[in-house]
Design a binder for these strands. Structure first.
Lengths: 129, 129
DNA sequence: ATACTATTGATAATGATTGCCAATAAATAA
DNA sequence: TTATTTATTGGCAATCATTATCAATAGTAT
């Protein structure tokens, strides 16, 4: 692809993901920015989030239902999604050894992997139904 | 929930997932069935796949872009998605020990987890661009 | 056979995301 | 600084995957 230009929109979008600090979705990023900059386009938010994830500046965390969530925390970690409230939390763990063995043994060219957990978060555990 | 009734649609849908044997999507299941039974509704396919996954009769494999894929292989295994052709392949591996430690240590009530790999599959590896 | 109600088919509606394109604005050259 | 080039934007239509709605249908228990 061609040269990537720096725009104020890009900066706003990146800052929003960092500022929100909640594994934000494109929609949440848009709302956050639109408060101060209502002229930003939702398409611009979607485009840039995807582009930044592609470039490795953000992480598209592999939550497998609903909207795509982005993370500014680039060190290897995993995610837990609450089935009641939908919140996403960080999970640490060391899978490196098993993953490496799988990579070596595989006939495919594995370049990435994603581990996510689901269940009921500590906040929702106490609530009835 | 109420009693689940047995219908010919349910059977057709389950058989389609088994028969296709390709980690099929709802759309693929629909197409497969509609060849012989064009009167089946797409909504019925979506509803039943979700219900069977909920009931543990099928597995909703956590591929995190595009449509939901279903698997009739219920033993614990993982998936690899090719970024070029989108095919889904099975991956084996033993994460039980690490997962158990994470479950024990977590403040959340972890009931499920999903591990998926991505990259270029053995078929697409040789192809240019 | 009858009654009850889960399930279906058809389609509208929704939510997430992408495609399109003319207007705008970075980056670089002159 | 100005001109040139073209990546990027904003606005909106379109698409894709999925869910909601609801009257009609068909399992299941009696």
């Amino acid at each position: 692809m061609a040269i990537r230009r720096n725009t104020i929109q890009k900066q706003l979008i990146f800052d929003a993901v960092v500022g929100l600090n909640i594994h934000a979705t494109a929609e949440q990023v848009y709302e956050y920015i639109a408060k101060e900059n209502p002229s930003i386009s939702k398409a611009t938010v979607y485009r840039n989030l995807a582009q930044m994830a592609e470039a490795g500046e953000l992480l598209n965390i592999g939550v497998f239902y609903g909207a795509t969530h982005y993370d500014h925390n680039l060190h290897r970690h995993y995610h837990f999604v609450c089935s009641k409230c939908g919140s996403v939390f960080d999970i640490d763990g060391d899978f490196a050894c098993t993953i490496n063995k799988i990579k070596e043994d595989s006939q495919h060219q594995i370049t990435d992997y994603n581990i996510s957990f689901s269940g009921v978060c500590y906040k929702c555990k106490g609530l009835k139904s």
